[in-house]
Amino acid sequence: MAKIVVDVMLKPEILDPQGDAVASALLRLGFSFAQSVRQGKRFEIEVEGEPTASQISQVEKAAELLLSNSVIETYVVRVEK
């Protein structure tokens, strides 16, 4: 079963207080490597067999329409085996 994955991230200019809170927590735990943290969403969409070009383009549409909000977010669609 292959998966079509959609990663949604806040645009760089949009404040991400959740990511900032995670970055502070990392620092408190001694993980001092993190310059900054951004938190996003990942959608895994299972399809029967190999995803077709038409399925991928429909997922692109769904990502634009529902899964992301273009005012504040960007998305990337990819296939994962």
């Binding site: 806040l10 949009i14 404040l15 207080p17 959740q18 809170a21 909000n69 005012v71 504040i72």
Partner: peptide, 17 residues
């Protein structure tokens, strides 16, 4: 209303969480 595009912009997480 923002999600419906009847109004511009978006409402995001309060800055202090």
């Amino acid at each position: 209303l923002c999600e419906s595009h009847l109004l511009p912009g978006a409402l995001t997480r309060n800055s202090d969480l």
